[in-house]
Nucleic acid binder design. Structure first.
Lengths: 110, 110
DNA sequence: CAGCATCCGGGGCGATACTG
DNA sequence: CAGTATCGCCCCGGATGCTG
C-alpha cells in the first residue's frame, strides 16, 4: 500500500474540487452538459468544462456529440469509470451521514 | 444525494492533497509525527503539520503528546475517523488497480 | 446549446530557517 | 523530535465576454 506515490498519482487526478462530484452525478446514466451544470451545485461553466476534459482524457468518462442543431453532447461514465462509481457513492453517503458531526467538531468556525 | 452542497462541504475537507493519505497511513494504529513523515512519500513537514491540524479540528484524528524528553507525539484515527478508513483503503486499492490503465489512456503526456 | 478565451485574485503548497 | 515562522511561486478557479 505504501507504493511510493502511485496512490498519490491517481488521487491527484480525482481528488480535485469537482471530479468526484461529476462522477457521482453521472451514476445513473448519461447526462448533457447543461444537465450536469444544473445538477452540480456551485460549479462554474469553466470548471465543468475542464473537469470533463480531464475525466475524458483519463478514460473515466466518455463524450458523445450528436450532429444536430442545436448541438447535443452527452457524457457518460466508461467501464473504467463505473468501477469508481460505488466508491464515490459510498464517500457521498459518508459525507452526508457525518456532516453534522464534523461541523460540530469545528464549532462552526471557518 | 443532490443535497445542495453538503457533500461538497465535507469533500472539501478531505479531498485536499494529503488528508486521505494521512488517514490511510494511520489505518493500522497510532503513529508518531516522524513516522508519518517517512511513511507518506513526498509530503513536506509543513503540509503534514497543517493536514494533521485540520484532521484534528474535524475530529477525524486525535493527537496525544507524552510529557517526555525528547517529546513524543502520537496521532491516531478517532472513532469517527475509523468509519472513513475503509473508504480510504478502497480508494487506494482502486487507485493501485487502475493506475496503469489511467496512465495508458493519458498516453503518458502531462 | 455547449463550449473556448482572457483576465486576475486568493491561497495551497513547497523551501528554508529557526525553536522548546 | 516535533513542530513554528516567513517568503514567495504557481495555479486553481471564479467572472465575464465571445463563438460555431
Amino acid at each position: 500500500m505504501n507504493d511510493g506515490g502511485a496512490v498519490r498519482e491517481v488521487l491527484d487526478r480525482i481528488s480535485d474540487k469537482w471530479s468526484l462530484l461529476v462522477i457521482g452525478a453521472l451514476r445513473n446514466g448519461p447526462l448533457r452538459f447543461g444537465e450536469l451544470e444544473k445538477g452540480i451545485t456551485g460549479i462554474s461553466q469553466r470548471m465543468l468544462t475542464l473537469t470533463l476534459k480531464h475525466l475524458v482524457e483519463d478514460g473515466l468518462v466518455s463524450r458523445t456529440a450528436y450532429p444536430e442543431v442545436p448541438p447535443r453532447v452527452e457524457y457518460e461514465v466508461t467501464d473504467l469509470g463505473k468501477t469508481l462509481v460505488p466508491l464515490v457513492i459510498a464517500l457521498a453517503e459518508w459525507a452526508i451521514a457525518h456532516r453534522d458531526e464534523i461541523n460540530a467538531n469545528r464549532g462552526g468556525h471557518h
